[in-house]
């Protein structure tokens, strides 16, 4: 565990906490894409299938449980909680997210490190995570009304991706045989998707204006 990996995990954790805070305390999910949250729930469910069979550390298992529990509870809140679900921007959040799953599955079947059940699903989760933010970014553009918590949530998620790239670079130079091309490329694609958001986030921050994305 290096400092970049830890910083990445902590910003990821913080992003989830910010979102839960918004949903749990303010009882609002305005501006949050249910499509993206459903994709994240599938990402974690397929990636952490090995939670019972592969033990790395108590830290890893605990974090897996937190990400699984939080992603499914966020989906539950947005779909079924009587107050929260009324704040969901249903009409704006129209990205056809299920269509992202088939190409990701096909790609995982074609390009993987090892052709086993767990490994293909792990790879599928990497590809799906790379594009899972798309419905959220589309919703942001459409609503044009981005509150601070939603902006911070996406900012922290992007930060998590950035720190993971630094972690991979660090590990590549410090650990022999540490080469994971698929993880790196999927992670890089994912981070590039945030790059656009970051650009407008900093622009609005610099001009001291409310975050607004171009149509």
């Amino acid at each position: 565990m290096n400092i970049f990996r830890l910083a990445g995990d902590m910003t990821h954790l913080a992003s989830v906490l910010v979102l839960l805070l918004k949903i749990h305390t303010i009882k609002s999910c305005a501006g949050v894409s249910l499509k993206t949250q459903e994709l994240y729930a599938i990402v974690f469910a397929t990636r952490y299938l090995d939670i019972l069979t592969s033990f790395v550390s108590i830290y890893n298992t605990l974090m897996k449980l937190i990400f699984l529990g939080s992603s499914f509870s966020i989906v539950w809140y947005m779909k079924y909680h009587k107050t929260v679900r009324r704040t969901y921007d249903r009409d704006q959040d129209t990205f056809r997210h299920w269509f992202l799953m088939l190409p990701c599955l096909l790609l995982a079947l074609l390009i993987h490190e090892k052709f086993t059940f767990f490994e293909v699903l792990w790879t599928f989760s990497l590809y799906l995570e790379a594009v899972a933010i798309l419905p959220q970014l589309v919703l942001l553009q459409r609503t044009r009304n981005i509150d601070n918590l939603t902006g911070q949530y996406i900012f922290l998620l992007g930060g998590y991706r950035g720190f993971y790239i630094l972690n991979w670079i660090y590990r590549y130079f410090t650990e022999p045989h540490y080469v994971h091309w698929i993880t790196w490329i999927a992670g890089l694609v994912q981070t590039l998707l945030y790059a656009d958001f970051f650009y407008y986030y900093f622009l609005s921050w610099k001009n001291n204006k409310k975050l607004q994305l171009p149509a």
Binding site: R5, D9, D50, V56, M63, F67, T116, F118, W122
Partner: peptide, 10 residues
């Protein structure tokens, strides 16, 4: 063997 790759990241 059918052993899985070691995934130590989240």
């Amino acid at each position: 063997s059918e052993s899985e790759l070691e995934h130590d990241e989240l």
